[in-house]
């Protein structure tokens, strides 16, 4: 599955870069949007046709509720850790990591209120996070278990990475992923400006 995923994205990127006239890009964007909606619809369809869903959810550990907060803390610590080694500002790194994969919003928030270059870094970092999440989720689900496979996607576990989580894990994990992605999505617009404020205080 990982191979198919990487192949489709790589082919898209090559076509997009070399062959596609920019005038046609909106069509690709709406194809992506409708593909995503159709996918999420089939995820909902599978969840709805499962009559044992309620019982399966009860078998989940209580930790499941804490997952978005664990993902938030882990993401920020990971981003800060890497940037301490790279010798760059740890609080700026925290703000970049606090995008949780939502590249459009985190980049705009940072570029408009803080610094354009840091905004570009947030854009790239969170795009990479999304791409790496899409490619690594099947592998993480197989090696480390179903619940850790929710983590790479961050905020995107409620949309772009949800179908991949759904295909690589089971239905109760898919529900937790949607919950976790929603909580993280709501966190980004509050957390990123807060971390930027801290970064400004300590420069």
């Amino acid at each position: 599955m990982t191979l198919k995923i990487v192949g489709a994205m790589a082919m898209g990127a090559i076509c997009g870069h070399f062959f596609v006239d920019p005038a046609y890009l909106p069509y690709f964007e709406s194809a992506a949007d409708w593909g995503l909606r159709l996918l999420i619809f089939t995820v909902g369809l599978d969840l709805g046709s499962n009559e044992n869903l309620g019982r399966q959810v009860k078998t989940l550990p209580k930790t499941a509720l804490a997952i978005p907060f664990l993902i938030a803390v882990g993401s920020i610590i990971g981003a800060v850790g890497v940037n301490l080694i790279l010798d760059s500002h740890p609080l700026e790194a925290a703000a970049v990591g606090g995008g949780f994969g939502w590249y459009s919003l985190s980049a705009v928030l940072i570029a408009q209120t803080y610094d354009v270059t840091l905004g570009a870094l947030a854009f790239l970092t969170n795009i990479f996070r999304e791409v790496l999440a899409i490619t690594s989720i099947p592998w993480i689900a197989a090696k480390l278990g179903h619940l850790p496979a929710i983590a790479p996607g961050g905020a995107t576990a409620m949309d772009v990475t949800l179908p991949i989580i759904s295909q690589s894990t089971d239905q109760q994990t898919t529900l937790v992923a949607f919950y976790s992605g929603t909580v993280l999505t709501l966190m980004v617009p509050v957390l990123v400006p807060f971390l930027l404020k801290l970064a400004r205080l300590f420069t």
């Binding site: 082919m11 898209g12 990127a13 997009g16 870069h17 070399f18 964007e29 992506a32």
Partner: peptide, 10 residues
Amino acid sequence: LLFSMGATMG
């Protein structure tokens, strides 16, 4: 979805 995402990024 993946192909179109790749294209918009590329």
